[in-house]
Design a protein around this nucleic acid. Structure first.
Lengths: 101, 101
DNA sequence: ATAGTATTTGAACAAACATTCAAATACTAA
DNA sequence: TTAGTATTTGAATGTTTGTTCAAATACTAT
């Protein structure tokens, strides 16, 4: 059957789909989506502030932002002891804002 | 500290965020995102066709669309032995198309 | 140096997950 | 009825995942 030959080829070259799935998966978690939600409203927030707002520990926030950072969905800025995170400026986040506006 | 009193209250009432995280999580999987990608391009596809295109089994497609169906991201139409799935017409899918365009 | 604050790390645990397989269901056609 | 096709189901598998905890790191101020 060659009926779907074209779309099969198109799919093979769609490596971005896998990356997109990974990004969506990372954002598809309550804690991490809340963090993104916060960062849509504040230009930047420290780990401690996010933990305070979310009512959780520094550890879960740190683990969470690390995953977001690994996929370049957030940026990191360190000032003295404090680490501030902000939403990265990319296409994914622009679309994401449409979801959680 | 009452610095974040307002955003904490806003977050509490944001029940949609959890639902959104669930939807993003379901779509944040390679197999299921590929299915959505296919359904963006074809008005509807049968389980067998999707399995053929994706190079996988009927079983994984069936399991996958079931999850999408449970969150109302796809619709189901049965004709004779064949079951056709199509993308549901909702806000989530409209934005999703922005991701996988 | 020490004490204090902020964040990160890594191991451990249980819970959730994707995929496989075989069996079951649903429907058509003869 | 039977045989054939399409899909679904459920159990089992190993893998990944989120959270917890305690310890470690990084920096500031004294």
């Amino acid at each position: 059957m060659v009926k779907y030959h074209h779309i099969k080829a198109a799919l093979k070259n769609k490596k971005e789909l896998l990356e997109c799935a990974r990004q969506l998966g990372v954002v598809g978690d309550a804690t991490r989506l809340k963090i993104c939600y916060l960062l849509c409203r504040y230009p930047e927030l420290s780990v401690g502030d996010m933990a305070e707002i979310l009512g959780t520990t520094h550890s879960v926030v740190s683990h969470s932002v690390k995953k977001l950072l690994k996929l370049a969905l957030v940026k990191r800025r360190k000032q003295a002891q404090t680490v501030y995170y902000s939403l990265a400026d990319n296409a994914f986040n622009k679309t994401l804002k449409g979801f959680i506006a």
